[in-house]
Simulated scan of single mutants.
Amino acid sequence: MQYDLQKIGRIIREERKKHDTWTQKKFGTMLGVTGKQVSNYENGKLLPPQDILLKMAELFNCEYGYLLGEESYKDGSKLNTAVCDFMGLSNRSVESIRAATHKGLKAELGDRQCAINSFFESPYFGRFIDCLVDAVDISKRLTAFNDALSQELINRYGEKIVAQATVYCSLSDAVPANITSDPHFQEVVNEIEAAIDKGRNQEYAQKVARYELREAFEHLIRGIEW
């Protein structure tokens, strides 16, 4: 597809100037390019590479297609596209899929898109997503449990003694006398050890979830038609 570089440059310039403090140099720094390159983009001398356009779309809070001057995005529609609304996906997710399907040389695009379609169309894809969601959920709950316990102990006993008790619980029985001199030290140790025992069930569930996720992914890959 042939793009109008002057039109693309004009769109980029207009979007950048909506932010009063975004000079070409500053905008270039945000993109990881030079101010001169930004100038070349805005003057229609160069077409920004795809990764730079994706960064621009994110910074401008607009659609990738809008920056390319595509007619379907002529109104500069923002993140809530039909795809995002229908699928419940973020704009970044949609653009990541778009980038993956359009990466590489033109001759390779057909094979790339066929492989990606096979991935999503696989009968095992749903099972893989279910396992992924379960694994993430268990990991979040375990992290939340540990964080809540740590904060509760810190609020009651102070950060220093909790840190000492945590180190103690992770090491051998040999503990320097100056660490155990605090009268509340053993109380904290007991609570941490009780929490460790309680958390083992969640850690086991986490291991099972990760195993099932790996197994589901292997089934998914094996089930793809090559």
Rank of each mutant, 00 (worst) to 15 (best):
M1W: 09
M1I: 10
L5Y: 04
L5C: 04
L5S: 01
G9I: 04
R13E: 10
E14N: 13
E15R: 08
E15S: 04
R16Q: 03
H19M: 12
D20N: 14
D20L: 13
T21F: 08
K25F: 12
F27W: 04
G28E: 00
T29I: 08
M30R: 02
T34W: 07
T34M: 07
K36L: 13
V38N: 02
V38Q: 05
N40P: 00
N43Y: 04
N43A: 07
K45Q: 14
L47T: 04
L47E: 06
P48A: 08
Q50K: 15
D51Y: 13
L53P: 01
M56F: 01
A57L: 01
F60S: 03
E63R: 10
Y64I: 03
G65W: 05
Y66K: 03
L67P: 00
L68Q: 03
G69S: 03
E70M: 11
E71P: 02
E71R: 10
K74R: 11
K74N: 08
S77L: 09
S77C: 11
K78H: 13
L79R: 15
L79H: 15
L79V: 11
C84I: 10
G88W: 06
G88S: 08
S90W: 10
N91H: 08
S93G: 01
S93T: 08
V94S: 05
V94F: 05
E95S: 12
S96H: 12
I97D: 02
T101H: 03
K103A: 14
L105N: 14
L105G: 12
A107S: 15
E108I: 04
L109I: 09
D111K: 15
D111T: 11
C114R: 14
C114I: 08
I116R: 06
N117T: 12
N117M: 14
F119V: 04
F120P: 06
E121V: 00
S122Q: 11
P123S: 09
P123C: 11
G126A: 03
F128A: 05
F128D: 01
D130V: 07
S139I: 00
K140A: 08
R141H: 04
A144K: 14
A144R: 13
F145P: 01
F145Q: 10
D147Y: 07
D147L: 10
D147I: 12
N155M: 10
R156G: 07
K160R: 14
K160W: 05
I161V: 15
V162P: 00
A165K: 01
A165W: 01
V167M: 15
V167Q: 15
Y168C: 10
C169Q: 05
S172F: 06
S172I: 08
D173L: 07
A174M: 14
A174P: 02
N178I: 08
N178M: 08
I179S: 08
S181V: 12
S181P: 02
D182P: 03
D182L: 04
P183W: 04
P183L: 05
F185W: 06
E187S: 07
V188R: 00
V189I: 09
E191F: 01
I192S: 01
E193M: 05
A195E: 03
A195C: 06
I196Q: 04
D197W: 05
D197R: 10
Q202W: 13
E203C: 10
Y204N: 13
A205Q: 12
A205M: 11
Q206V: 02
V208L: 09
A209S: 05
Y211L: 15
Y211K: 15
Y211W: 11
E215D: 15
E215P: 03
A216S: 11
E218I: 11
E218Q: 15
E218T: 15
H219E: 15
